[in-house]
Nucleic acid binder design. Sequence first.
DNA 1: AGTAACGTATTGAATGTTCATTCGGTATGC
DNA 2: GCATACCGAATGAACATTCAATACGTTACT
Lengths: 186, 186
Amino acid sequence: MDKKQRIIITMLELVVKQGVHATPMSQVAKEANVAVGTIYHYFENKNQIIEEIYMMIVKDYGVVLIANLPEGDFKKQYKTMWLNLYNYFVGNPLAYKFIEYVAVPPIISKEIVKQSIPYISNIRDIFLDGIKNKHLRDVPVKLMLQMTFGDVVSAVRLKIKEELEMANDHIDLALEMSWDSIKHKG
Amino acid sequence: MDKKQRIIITMLELVVKQGVHATPMSQVAKEANVAVGTIYHYFENKNQIIEEIYMMIVKDYGVVLIANLPEGDFKKQYKTMWLNLYNYFVGNPLAYKFIEYVAVPPIISKEIVKQSIPYISNIRDIFLDGIKNKHLRDVPVKLMLQMTFGDVVSAVRLKIKEELEMANDHIDLALEMSWDSIKHKG
DNA sequence: AGTAACGTATTGAATGTTCATTCGGTATGC
DNA sequence: GCATACCGAATGAACATTCAATACGTTACT
């Protein structure tokens, strides 16, 4: 793995464990087996590393979310996307914790958040379609997206904090609850 | 207002705006019209102030949540609690932002979180009752509590970030979605 | 009432540490 | 020989916390 990559990964690990401001560059350098100066060869400053990590993770979203999306049945599509995100977070606890605990203002600027929007616009379109075709209830997309994302995060939280084992049947319950909150009431 | 109170409020305001580590004690002292030394007369250290703020807000929960709880109809009870929390957060954006952005590990230790549990145990009991009496579906309470809390936070987020006006009808939509996700399927 | 003694409240300059960032230099490959 | 990668000691700023000194208020004794 090249040094730039090592610096990013090390920073991610440390920052998730200790918090941004409790993670000195010297420590990052040491644990990445790199000199402090080398870090500044690849990055402008500390915050730029954080921002690069943020963009890296958000870019994953757009790809992960719509992976293996089945044709036809909207409920199945929803379940797939939901589980895609759930599994992504559970399988990448560093990414999850970074998004939950590190990527908050004022560490991540509104500017960077704005730049990340295009990467997840495909999901928006899928939901808009679902609403138009009466698979989903008629509420503002933003509301629906936020609540769905919130549901996944709630499930992930329980799993990661080990407050609930989250065996398969628990996941199914959470998923069913989430679906019932957005499905069209016919 | 006495100095201790002034220090707490000032710290809350600054910490929500700038983040814990970007808020020097010297600034808190200045904006609270107090000498730095005075802060250390009332508090052990910086982190203790943060913890005191955290406990202050969590204690509010227990009180706010069950205010004006109607008798009988469980759905009405749920709506009341949901709106109680929603309105509390919207009316106290500092409290909301503190809980969302500041009160995260490792700033807030697991120890402090544990200490705060008793203050919100009454809600747990209400939900357990709802499950027993088939008003709510039969899922682990922790899951239900987490998802409900998540739903409120999702709504608050949209409002506070001004991504959605969240007029009354929007709030009703969110509330209805939340209720549909937990209500017993008869 | 006068005052001495004592604890609590308050002050802010001084201390010592920690850290992000710089920079002059060396190695490596082209 | 030029450019890019890499190094880490040195710099200087920022900060949490300490502490010696001062003010204030209250009790307690004459």
